[in-house]
């Protein structure tokens, strides 16, 4: 649970973690039900709709105004997004 929470950058209280363990177990058990079905020769479904090749032409369209974009960011400098240090101190 801790590992999954860390990958998603979620900080859970002990109570929350305990509740999530219960919920996740329920979900996993539900998925386990699939093991009871014979799925030989059934391809995995990545997409529920029978659509393929939805493509667009390689033509340039409008872009956003930089000032507007950066105004929505918590911090900016020098025309770029400013982010806190990426790696923890060693």
């Amino acid at each position: 649970m801790e590992h999954v929470a860390r990958l998603a950058r979620l900080s859970l209280t002990d109570d929350e973690a305990e509740r999530m363990v219960g919920e996740l177990s329920g979900i996993l058990e539900h998925v386990e039900d699939l093991a009871a079905i014979d799925l030989d020769g059934v391809p995995p479904t990545a997409h529920p709709l029978p659509l393929v090749n939805v493509l667009r032409a390689d033509e340039v369209g409008p872009t956003l105004d930089r000032e507007e974009v950066l105004a929505a960011a918590p911090d900016a400098a020098d025309g770029r997004f400013r982010v806190p240090r990426i790696l923890d101190a060693p």
Binding site: R80, R82, V83, R85, I86, L87, P90
Partner: peptide
């Protein structure tokens, strides 16, 4: 260097 940086700037 990423290891010693104080902050980083990103261009998308």
């Amino acid at each position: 260097r990423i290891h010693d940086a104080e902050h980083s700037l990103v261009d998308y």
